[in-house]
Design a protein around this nucleic acid. Sequence first.
DNA 1: CTGATGTGTGAGAACGTTCTCTTAACCGAA
DNA 2: TTCGGTTAAGAGAACGTTCTCACACATCAG
Lengths: 362, 362
Amino acid sequence: MVPKNKATITDVARAAGVSTATAGRVLGGYGHTSEDKKEQVLKAAQSLGYRPNALARSLITGKTRTLGVVAGDIQSPFYASVLRGISNVAEANGFGLLITNSDEAQSKEVRSVELLAQKQVDGLIVTPSDTRKARHLHNLRAMGVPLVLIDRAVAGLMVDRVATDNIAAAEHAVRHLIAAGHRRIGIVAELVDEDGGGLAAFLNRAIAGDPIETETLYPSWQRLLGYVRAHRIEGLSVDPRLTLRAGSYSAQAAQAVVPSLMAAAEAPTALFTTDGTMSEGAMRALNELQISIPGDVSIICFDDLDWMSFHRPGITTISQPRLAMGEAAARMLLERIRGEEYPPRTVLMPAELIERGSVARL
Amino acid sequence: MVPKNKATITDVARAAGVSTATAGRVLGGYGHTSEDKKEQVLKAAQSLGYRPNALARSLITGKTRTLGVVAGDIQSPFYASVLRGISNVAEANGFGLLITNSDEAQSKEVRSVELLAQKQVDGLIVTPSDTRKARHLHNLRAMGVPLVLIDRAVAGLMVDRVATDNIAAAEHAVRHLIAAGHRRIGIVAELVDEDGGGLAAFLNRAIAGDPIETETLYPSWQRLLGYVRAHRIEGLSVDPRLTLRAGSYSAQAAQAVVPSLMAAAEAPTALFTTDGTMSEGAMRALNELQISIPGDVSIICFDDLDWMSFHRPGITTISQPRLAMGEAAARMLLERIRGEEYPPRTVLMPAELIERGSVARL
DNA sequence: CTGATGTGTGAGAACGTTCTCTTAACCGAA
DNA sequence: TTCGGTTAAGAGAACGTTCTCACACATCAG
């Protein structure tokens, strides 16, 4: 029996012959009620098909039991996995999930945050699209809205954060290539929006070993830094011509930038791609150029995608724990929502090198 | 200037020296207000950092401008793309998106729907995990909650629905294999929860050309039906031993079931996998068995995944418009929410055969 | 017997909006 | 002048809950 027009707590109270207060106590599970009244109310609720209105409840309690997420693009394997991780712990705690895409554009991110804030989410998980300016995020903090950052940091924004240890992971990958005898290693990276004077200046500082503020670096720059550090450690010089900047976050951009490098006089013997999208673009380019792996060129990719294990040859990758990152972020956010107080925490998750068949020994 | 404690419309009204009614009219954009009052209110709102509380608004208007989605698993490429499509039109219309996973388990689906209903979403998009019984969905209809189904139908539930034309697409794929000279074609399908007497009985009815209620068939069964029909049309008999049922929706299950078939006395010369997950499992198995494509076996996959275009050889696939499906579903839902009345619509989207290099001519 | 403590119940306020009424002013037409 | 219509603005109800308060009635220690 499902009535067409929804029953409210007042209807239930009337049907059960009690006050709305008592009905609320039974149905909301707070306060004290006698067994018989409880039974009456429950029976009335059942027969009326009562469903609590979370809106009204939230309005008065000030809690929505809803988390807001601003992801770059739900569709990409990275965000899809992270979201699943977030969803797992949200669900386990009875929280809903309001999800938006920023497409890595700050204007969209700002609109998303505004939407989520108006809907009164209890907390937000954001992958900020700009690591420098982010007034909307500072505002959230000032308003006391719990906030957790994933994958990127924001300068001066002291909040919880979870990310991969990009520098160490990239360094590990490149040293693995060097250990296999490779001396000319190309890097295919997004490297959008250079901060502090462009790619050349960054490379010079990195090569010279100058101190660099790594926290607020974009992941692709961090991975480039790891690449440079690996060279330094192994006593190799870095050839800037081997640094391929896609300039935007798309497989097309990566694909477009690879051929020139491979056709160069001194082509690299190995490639390091700095994320799943770059990997896809690079693979597309190599496929079109009929370059064989690892015969003509070796490759290590950042982020282990499904196909890499059954591709021939298997692709050697840096596997980052995407699901666990989402879960960690959600758990940290829930702690903040519960009111637990810590100094802002940064969780750097280790990535794992998975050796398959895409790296040749020279 | 961002005040710590949030300002309400009452605060704004007081600061502007008007009634809450007038402030509401300005800030909510309804009714009439004079220019000077409007200016005062806007200025007050600005300086107080006023942000409307969507909860309170929704409570009284009865509209939340939020869509609920119950997907199987956000993480899978299929759902990720569909969700992105939904998200695109939701966002364009100023709607939020509350997303949950069912993992294809009805118990979780029921809990998800309950959560979303309590949060008073204006409408729901669901990929029902059970096409037979779905009381919770019938209840929604009875309560007048707009509902759109994706990918699957539910027996007796007359609501809008968008899906791929699975039977035609599968038939097309298998006929393509037959045209290439293949006579023994294996099918790798999920085929969970047989309805009406199991796989053998279903095959017999399909082979005999008996009428079959196709609407409420699960996609993998529909694709199996297309497979059988292709054989009928081409005058070939169907060998039930070539029907591989994974029995659950996971790549592992698909992977586990392939080796026996390939080792059989009369192994198939071609394989048809009925979805992305089955494709992945089959590819894993073939890779482990060192079976080469298309030399040892040809393959056509259902659902075009990213890697299929740069895999060597390129994988010939049936490409279904996942993004467009999500967009269509969201658009239909928004129409219903706006109150437009039609008889329940079923949108069957055509899938496209993309020829690449995984099918050999015999 | 008194006071303190705890349980059970209801009346009514509160949450932050929008909605419904009412009043008032103004305008032009009868 | 009177009437109807439009525009502007405020008072207060309404949405469906939970919260606060008050009160009645136990029970129990001193």
